[in-house]
């Protein structure tokens, strides 16, 4: 059965604390920490972008899968921070992992669900028998306008999944997608920062689409919340995943292993995919795992995976996600962060 044959995560080392951002803008750090359940977020180094993190996460996925990269027939990169407006991230990724030249590649964009979109397409191509292996990456160096609420959460990270039919570590049992035109968050061409609808990003956006997607896939597969060992929801802040989990009838302990946002921030296209990598790091054979992404604009992709015995064999071939999140951190001040993120206007 088709499924995930390898997965990999990449989280940059720099971190900035909520207090450090709040003190610059005169905001109340404790209320952000309590209200959004955020403590710190990952920040890319100046020489890192969506492409470099995609390559590192894909290399980790390849180490776990142990396949010849030249047999990968499709490479998709989902992001809302592709370094070029015109020139594919996927081509550089495919070149760096030596999947070229017999490979189909495309860059995807759908706010925070571009990564799961790639997974959806990659899995479908493998299921259809069009390619032997397909790679999907969700990666972002998210933009948050200085002083905006998003600045406390917009983070950086990447997760990569290789799909194939032979020796899956997690079989894909079902997929479902839920999409409507909902203007909760957007960024127009040539704009540096996105805009959002404030509280409108909640009920009619995140909650409606995630519950619609999760209920749809459970109906389609005949499964109920108690059947799943773990569930991963998109994580724009710490609170939303737990609240939507409660609405759907999931317990905290099903959510917690893949809940990274308090220390990681919102990695946009990498958010729920990174949660899935952290969950696969600890899942046992036979476990059912539900992943539900969310992308503003708006839509949600969901997947039901069943973990196989092969997980034990491959998971320590590459660094685990929480080891990257908790180890070797470098805390930076707001000034350094502003420089790294090119928020300082310099002479031409």
């Amino acid at each position: 059965m088709a499924g995930i044959i390898g997965y990999g995560a990449y989280i940059p080392r720099n971190r900035i604390k909520v207090e450090e951002i709040a003190k610059v803008w005169g905001a109340d750090a404790p209320s952000y920490k309590k209200g959004l359940m955020l403590e710190e977020k990952a920040v890319p180094s100046p020489d890192q972008d969506t492409i470099t993190m995609s390559v590192e996460s894909a290399r980790n996925a390849l180490k776990r899968a142990g396949i010849d990269p030249r047999e990968i027939g499709a490479v998709y990169v989902g992001s809302e921070s592709h370094p070029y407006a015109v020139k594919p991230s996927g081509a550089t990724l495919a070149e760096a992992i030596n999947a070229v030249p017999a490979v189909h590649t495309a860059d995807l964009e759908f706010a925070c669900k571009a990564g799961s979109e790639g997974m959806f397409i990659a899995l479908s191509l493998v299921q259809a028998g069009a390619v032997k292996y397909a790679l999907a990456v969700g990666a972002d160096t998210s933009q948050g306008a200085p002083g905006d609420a998003l600045e406390y959460s917009a983070a950086a990270g990447a997760a990569a999944f290789l799909f194939g039919k032979e020796k899956p570590i997690a079989e894909a049992l079902e997929t479902f997608s839920f999409t409507t035109d909902t203007p909760d968050f957007w960024r127009r061409e040539y704009m540096h920062y996105p805009q959002h609808g404030g509280r409108f990003t909640g009920d009619p956006a995140y909650f409606k689409h995630i519950t619609g997607s999760a209920e749809g896939i459970m109906k389609k597969s005949g499964l109920k919340p108690a059947d799943f060992a773990y569930v991963i929801f998109h994580q724009p802040n710490g609170k939303f995943p737990f609240r939507v989990g409660e609405m759907l009838g999931f317990e905290k302990k099903q959510i917690e292993p893949g809940w990274l946002v308090n220390k990681l921030g919102n990695t946009y296209s990498g958010s729920s995919p990174l949660g899935l990598t952290a969950t696969l790091d600890i899942a046992a054979p036979g476990d059912l795992v539900l992943m539900v992404s969310y992308g503003s604009g708006a839509g949600s992709d969901s997947f039901v995976f069943r973990v196989t015995e092969r997980i034990e064999e491959v998971r320590d071939r590459a660094p685990r996600t929480r080891a990257q999140l908790d180890g070797n951190k470098n805390y930076i001040e707001y000034g350094v962060y502003a420089k790294y993120r090119r928020k300082i206007r310099k002479a031409e």
Partner: peptide, 10 residues
């Protein structure tokens, strides 16, 4: 010191 290679913008 131990180092490893990473893919970066040059």
């Amino acid at each position: 010191m131990r180092v490893r290679i990473e893919f970066r913008k040059v």
